[in-house]
Structure formats: C-alpha cells, structure tokens
C-alpha cells in the first residue's frame, strides 16, 4: 500500500525531522491560531533564505567528507568587500554585477580553502578554522570595520523586489522577496550537480571512501577543490543577499552563525564521516532551525531556551538514528 514510498522511508532522518517540524507547527497552531498564516510563513521563508543557501554549501562539504566552518567569514568578507568596491568605483552599478562580484570574491576565498585541503592535503577542520580567523581579521583590519548603511542603490532596489506581496484579511502585511528565487536557484543547481552529473556522484564517492575513489580514477583533488570553490561562491551569494535585504553592510554580522547552519545540515541527516546527505534533509533541517529560532516564543518557550532546544534536537535527531544503526549492527553480528 505504500509502494510509492522509498523502501527506507520510515527509518530515514528526513522523515524524523519532517515529523518534528509538523509536530512543532501543530503545537504552535494550537497555542496561537495565527501561527500558520501566510504572514508567519513568509517571515520564516525570508529568514531561511540566507541560512538555506549557506546550509546547501555546508551539506556539500559534509557529503565530500570534510567540514567547513569558514563559510560565514567568506560570506561577510565577500559582501563587505564588494559593497566597498562598488561604492568606491561605480556606485550606480546594476545589482547583478555587484552580486557577481560578491560571488567571485566568495569563490576566490573558497579556492584558498580548496588549495590547502585538496592540494596540500591538510585536515579540513584545521584549515577552515584557520581561514575563518584570517578572512575575518583581514576584513576588519584592511577593508573596514564600519557598518555601511548607504549601500549602492541597486542593492536597495533588489531588496524591494518582491515575487508576491499583499495584505491578509486580518490586515497583516506579507511579502516574498526576489531573494527566495536565489535560494530556489541554488537548490535546483545543486540538485542537478549532485544527482545528474558525474562530478556530483564523485563528491558522494569521495565522501564514502577517498581511497576507493582514487583507485577507480576519480580526480579527488579537483573534485575537492570544486567543492570548496562552490561553497565559497554560495557563501558570497548568501552574504550579498544578507547585506541587500538587511540594507546594511555589517562586517560583524553572520560570523557565529556557522554552527547553527552545520547543525541544520546534520539534523537533516548528513553525517560528519562523509558520504551521506540530501537536499531534502538539509532544507528540512533549515526549516526546523529557523522555526525554533523565530517561533519558539509562540508555543510559550522563552527565547533564552533556543540554544537548549536546538542542542536537544541535534542530540535526538542524530542520536536516535545512530542508536538504531548500532542496535541493528549488534543484532546482525
């Protein structure tokens, strides 16, 4: 009767996380009927765009068997540097050009990670911990530590662009910004890479076993290099969206968010050992984290409990499947 479901549907992490999200929404609706209105949903969606793009990148790194903690530093660096650059040389530039610059900055910084990891063979956590500090320090020392609120006008225009807007019957305003399309674009492109190209399958293969990948002739170095460049580019995009939507280039923002993003990805079923992770899971993980961060108050839990809740969710969300796998293994042995 459930033949259309994947065989492992009930044991998948995605199912668990989706269940928790639905449960949370039901509880929230019971305690506040206004929770599930288009206003809340569009607020949550807006909040999810930047985290979502960053999470897709972080997921790719986890799948390849690495971990990246520097992407927030890359995002804020790329955003701030491109803002400063265009304010200095061409304040009237159209937004796609500014966005492209930020993406290129991100990709270049990602290439630095990629160089150390793929070509020097250094451990990913060590490299990205190092570059996290270096990128951020470099930004604050050499590029600037002032918040800039008079951004190029084209960035403001971008943030005004909406796909849909309106007012509900109850008089609440809602809007879905253009930036949502960016998240959608990132999701589709990453899905295509991961599912439909040999490059994407190679990323999974390397995460499964680097040695095996090397033996069957996968170009491990360039694949790893690509991963970090791609993640850097996504961070650049997320950063510039963050700056445009917030209408402020704040060099102190974003950094500190990386653990929440990785938490979302891990909740979605990606494993730190590499080789496992899906877009669906990642997006569900992002949804859960965003809901917890923004709506915990609705069900009567003080916001100070946010990090406790997220921590518990991680322990449960990753602990339960791990425990189940262990039980299954001991039964088999």
């Amino acid at each position: 009767m459930t033949a259309w479901l994947p065989k492992d549907f009930w044991t998948r992490n995605e199912t668990l996380v989706a269940g928790v999200v639905v449960l949370f929404c039901i509880i929230a609706m019971l305690s506040d009927p206004r929770f599930l209105t288009i206003t809340t949903v569009s607020d949550l969606l807006r909040a999810a765009i930047v985290i979502g793009i960053l999470a897709v990148g972080a997921m790719l790194v986890l799948v390849s068997g690495g971990i990246d903690v520097s992407f927030t530093a890359i995002a804020v660096f790329a955003m701030y540097a491109s803002s400063v650059l265009f304010l200095a040389v061409w304040p009237g530039a159209p937004w796609p050009l500014i966005f492209a610059a930020s993406i290129v900055f991100g990709a270049l910084l990602g290439a630095i990670n990629g160089f150390f990891i793929a070509f020097m063979g250094l451990p990913t956590l060590i490299v990205t911990l190092g570059t996290l500090s270096v990128f951020r320090g470099f930004l604050l020392t050499f590029i600037g530590s002032q918040r800039i609120s008079d951004l190029p006008p084209a960035m403001r225009d971008f943030s005004r662009g909406v796909l849909a807007r309106g007012t509900t019957e109850a008089g609440n305003f809602y809007s879905i910004p253009w930036a949502a399309l960016a998240l959608l674009f990132v999701i589709v492109m990453t899905w295509f890479i991961l599912r439909k190209t040999m490059l994407g399958r190679s990323i999974y293969a390397i995460g499964g076993s680097v040695e095996s990948a090397r033996r069957i002739g996968i170009n491990v170095r360039w694949t790893q290099f690509f991963v970090y460049v791609y993640v850097g580019a996504l961070a650049g995009l997320a950063g510039i969206i963050h700056g445009s939507v917030g209408r402020m280039a704040d060099p102190f923002s974003l950094v500190g968010l990386e653990l929440s993003v990785i938490a979302a990805v891990v909740l979605g079923g990606a494993r730190l050992i590499g080789g496992y992770g899906t877009l669906t899971g990642t997006l569900l993980g992002v949804a859960l984290i965003v809901i917890v961060q923004n709506s915990l108050i609705v069900i009567g839990i003080p916001t100070t409990w946010q990090s406790v809740t997220i921590g518990l969710l991680i322990l449960l969300g990753t602990g339960v499947p791990a425990y189940r796998a262990k039980r299954a293994a001991s039964r088999a042995g």
């Binding site: 190209t197 040999m198 399958r201 999974y204 293969a205 076993s209 996968i218 080789g275």
Partner: peptide
C-alpha cells in the same frame, strides 16, 4: 563505496572511463 547503491558501485568506474559528464 559503502554509501552508494550496488548499481552505482558497479557502473561508476565505467562511466568515469567513458568521460561521461552526466549521470
């Protein structure tokens, strides 16, 4: 590759050697 399916494990090297870009 423990994380990939039987089919993909069998076919991966072949696809790779044919310089296939798409899966």
């Amino acid at each position: 590759f423990p994380n990939l399916s039987v089919a993909e494990n069998i076919a991966f090297a072949t696809q790779l050697s044919k310089h296939k870009r798409f899966y």
